[in-house]
Design a protein around this nucleic acid. Structure first.
Lengths: 340, 340
DNA sequence: CGTTTTTCTGTGAGCGTGCACAGAACGTGG
DNA sequence: CCACGTTCTGTGCACGCTCACAGAAAAACG
């Protein structure tokens, strides 16, 4: 394994210049795709680069240009949710893909405990990244506050009320929740409840608002329960509570597919059939929806596109383009399957 | 939103030095926790740092020290698997956690298509990262080859035969597969098959080998099917094929929980009961295992610890410590639930 | 063929830090 | 009070690159 520190000195721009019989300036220009490089020089440099095996030293470049060519993806979720919620993974992939195309790097900052919060804030001020995509920010999220304070270009996935002026990309949670609830009602349900989740986030509170919209005068506060997380466990606990409160309940809107899956398991155990006795609808159109028996009627949200779009917006901000609109709303789609 | 490029000049070590009436050298020493800094200087510097709001410029530091304080996590999987396979998320979290503790950053490199492969290799030679953790490397993976060639400190999660000398952390796939298969056999099954997956990876081929070990003379090649991915779809297709080949099959070892879940769905649709008519066991002990009806008997593998351990090993390598053992094997555990 | 414009090239300075070296301040023992 | 070791501090240089500027070469024009 040789001596560990023994990696040979890497070739620099000087070596290339010497090999190609030109100056560093010319090499630099060529590398950055600037005009005014003669064909002969270009050719010689290309050969020299191949010969000495040159690759750019990014630290040096970053220092000189004062940018890092990296964007942070900030995920503020407990680890369990990070694993369970497929949206986060999809957003990550979408963001990563878009950034790769622009030759930027994705740096993952996963905030599990609040203890991490200050460390991350520190990091963001360190010039490691040129911008940030913030996923699943809570209202009054300390990280979000820190970022607006630092003035780092950032885009939210979702639209927290506590950061109204920040650029964001999201979906119409309220409208979609209203629509899917109406679909549920259209199957003739009389006693409809909701298992809400994550009310400290815009997605959670908006979905509840949409449910309320759809229910109108039939809205019954006692048929709404809420939990901190979009998790299967929330669905299990929520459904149990709802059944205790109203055993004649015949419709449930779950704040996410994972929640719905948990609820369905409880219904099955209690001897109720879906959709016969109880109709149930979810939100996300994630893996969970297809794994349920019967498959879940839900709202499809384009999580990967949210990531892509957020990445695009950050890149614009970083390059000094002020976006024409403060936020972008991506379309959702109702997916009717067997569960309601 | 002011002018985009107008972020004020950041305070440097010079500003701190001036403010504290000492020289940059002293500030630098203090920052790096070196000895020989007087208490009075230390105090003055601390105050100055707070006053001018100084944070280290990492680009400069990286340039001077020739290290980046970042480690790459290389995931070579199609996007669908990245989302579906909970192991990857868990490894990511474990790695991230350990690196954070050591003040290193995680840079995610997700290779979806082979097109990315060369780009990533280029990146790794660019000095962006001091080391790498490689997840789910195939045999003769081009990235793995590139890394060994570059001489970048790297640790594999898993142990591809094509990179026998690289440090790795893994589990005893073969032994665990053998044990779980024996559990299945112990329930009195006579016609037992396997839905294998990812035979181009050590985990996949080892699990098949373990199955073979357990079956001994009863091993029947026709009762083994294999698919490229550890996915639910593989389980669905695999189970269909197995039923066609032998409709009296009464036991199945699925190469992962996701595969098992797909297989169970097919069994249910075909009117067979689990574990009554067919016993089924999986591998991973992921979310999937608990979501099945009945819950899945499987092998628990400590994915988060694999990530942690890999991170620890990379950090050692980066700091010039040659690990006493080339690889570390973490223990697995049989989890018996209702499915067999 | 001289002059202006355009294209191309080389050079110096600077980005913010770590590190090695030289030297200052401080105590200690003779 | 001098010599000496220890603790502490300041300075120059290097890291590898980009950028602005000035000057050379080539092209265009009258």
């Amino acid at each position: 394994m040789a001596t560990p520190r023994a990696r040979p000195r890497r070739a620099t721009i000087f070596d290339v210049a010497a090999e190609a019989n030109v100056s560093r300036g010319t090499v630099s220009r060529m590398l950055n795709g600037e005009p005014y490089v003669s064909d002969s020089a270009r050719e010689a440099i290309e050969k020299a680069i191949a010969k000495v095996g040159y690759v750019r030293n990014m630290a040096a470049r970053n220092l000189a240009t004062q940018r890092s060519k990296a964007i942070a993806l900030i995920v503020h979720e407990p680890h369990s949710v990070f694993l369970e919620d497929p949206n986060i993974g999809a957003i990550l992939l979408g963001t990563n893909e878009r950034l790769s195309e622009a030759d930027y790097q994705l740096v993952c900052l996963i905030i599990g405990s609040d203890r991490d919060s200050t460390r991350i804030a520190e990091y963001l001020r360190g010039g490691f990244v040129d911008g940030a995509v913030i996923v699943s920010a809570r209202e009054h999220d300390p990280i979000a506050d820190a970022i607006t304070h630092i003035g780092l270009p950032a885009v939210f996935v979702g639209h927290p009320e506590s950061a109204p002026d920040m650029p964001y990309v999201g979906i119409d949670n309220r409208g979609a929740a209203r629509d899917i609830t109406r679909e549920l009602l259209a199957t003739g349900r009389k006693r409809v409840g909701m298992i809400a989740a994550a009310l400290d986030r815009d997605s959670g509170s908006e979905r509840l608002a949409g449910f309320r919209d759809a229910m109108g005068d039939d809205f019954d506060e006692r048929l709404v329960v809420d939990f901190p997380l979009y998790s299967r466990t929330s669905g299990v606990e929520g459904m149990k509570t709802l059944l205790e409160r109203a055993d004649d309940i015949d419709g449930v809107f779950a704040a996410s597919d994972a929640v719905a899956a948990g609820a369905m398991d409880v219904l099955r155990e209690s001897g109720r059939s879906v959709p016969g006795d109880v109709g149930i609808v979810g939100f996300d159109d994630s893996d969970w929806a297809l794994r349920c028996q019967p498959q879940l009627s839900t709202v499809r949200q384009p999580a990967d596109l949210l990531g892509r779009e957020a990445a695009s917006m950050v890149l614009e901000l970083v390059n000094g383009v002020t976006p024409e609109t403060p936020g972008r709303i991506l379309p959702t789609e109702i997916k009717l399957r067997g569960s309601a």
